[in-house]
């Protein structure tokens, strides 16, 4: 073996090492993220694709034994769209979402403005306000079911002091949705206060000082300084609120189970019923897909809004 040949192999080996190092360096960022990518692909990518597939199949309990899931084309969609329940759930979902978001936001903003004016214990009181948000949703549902109980609930007990007869909050089909919305408002207030409060903190103090010189105080200061500066945070809070509210299942299943007479049935609880009570996974998947399309529309709005604004 000549020395020239030897040095050539060394060079080739070196080049291979350099190539390998370069490849590794290129791959490193992905090696760090790889497990997360796998998880997301398996638990978000796969289910979304699988739901689309199942929505075109007759997928029922027998599928679990026989493995047979015959293709039925658009039959699942036809069934759910023509069902009298679909309109009801769509209307309920809209009312539930709009009702919850409106009041959560207005009350949340009022409280955030209140706590912005520092006073003794304001920090402590504000953080205690987060408690309802941290408690398991199903535990809150249990408490509210008890509070709203017609015979022995604390709310009717309290109203009784003023001579109001017992109200059937969760058992009357005309009242149940309002009751469920009320509970969801209570649950959402802490989150709204937390985000809006931090948004208020980010409004430069100098603006208020300059504004007060021009006579902008109180409502004027809110309209011309606070609100315009808070707008980006407001859009994010509202869109996130919508997306989170569309997902809600715990509260409704806990409080009413979708009843009475489907008066609190939403897209999400209906999808649950189809798949996990009636074991009709094909129709459940079809409803899920409607739900996902609605959620994604709002997700895109959120992304658009949060991209347009500086993120800090």
């Amino acid at each position: 073996m000549t020395s020239a040949h030897l040095s050539l192999t060394v060079a080739a080996g070196e080049r291979r090492t350099i190539l390998w190092t370069r490849l590794l360096r290129r791959a490193t960022p992905w090696l760090f993220s790889l497990p997360a990518v796998v998880f997301v692909a398996m638990f978000f990518g796969y289910p979304i694709v699988q739901n689309v597939v199942m929505s075109f199949q007759e997928y029922t309990t027998s599928t679990f034994y026989s493995g047979a899931a015959p293709w039925v084309g658009l039959a699942n969609y036809a069934t759910i769209l023509s069902s009298y329940l679909f309109t009801t759930t769509l209307v309920n979902t809209a009312l539930f979402t709009v009702g919850s978001i409106t009041f959560q936001f207005v009350i949340g903003l009022a409280l955030a403005l209140f706590f912005k004016r520092a006073f003794p214990l304001s920090g402590f009181l504000r953080s205690m306000l987060l408690l309802p948000w941290l408690i398991p949703l199903i535990a809150s549902s249990a408490v509210w079911k008890w509070l709203l109980d017609q015979e022995s609930g604390a709310l009717n007990q309290f109203l009784g002091l003023f001579g109001v007869p017992a109200v059937p909050w969760l058992v009357d089909p005309t009242l149940a949705l309002a009751g469920v919305i009320g509970v969801n408002i209570w649950l959402g207030i802490p989150f709204n206060v937390a985000i809006l409060y931090s948004g208020l903190q980010a409004v430069p103090k100098e603006l208020y000082e300059a504004g007060s010189l021009d006579g902008a105080t109180g409502w004027k200061a809110f309209r011309h300084i606070t609100w315009p500066n808070l707008r980006p945070v407001v859009s994010v809070v509202i869109v996130l609120g919508v997306v989170y509210t569309l997902k809600v299942v715990d509260i409704i299943l806990g409080l009413t189970g979708g009843g009475p007479a489907n008066s609190t049935q939403t897209l999400a609880t209906n999808a649950y019923n189809k798949s996990f009570v009636e074991f009709n996974f094909g129709e459940g998947a079809a409803i899920s897909n409607v739900l996902i399309v609605v959620s994604l529309v709002f997700a895109l709005v959120y992304l658009y809004l949060s991209r347009r604004e500086p993120s800090e």
Partner: peptide, 11 residues
């Protein structure tokens, strides 16, 4: 933003 219900249905 994807509802957990949708995930559970396929899981």
């Amino acid at each position: 933003m994807i509802p957990a219900m949708v995930i559970a249905n396929a899981l």
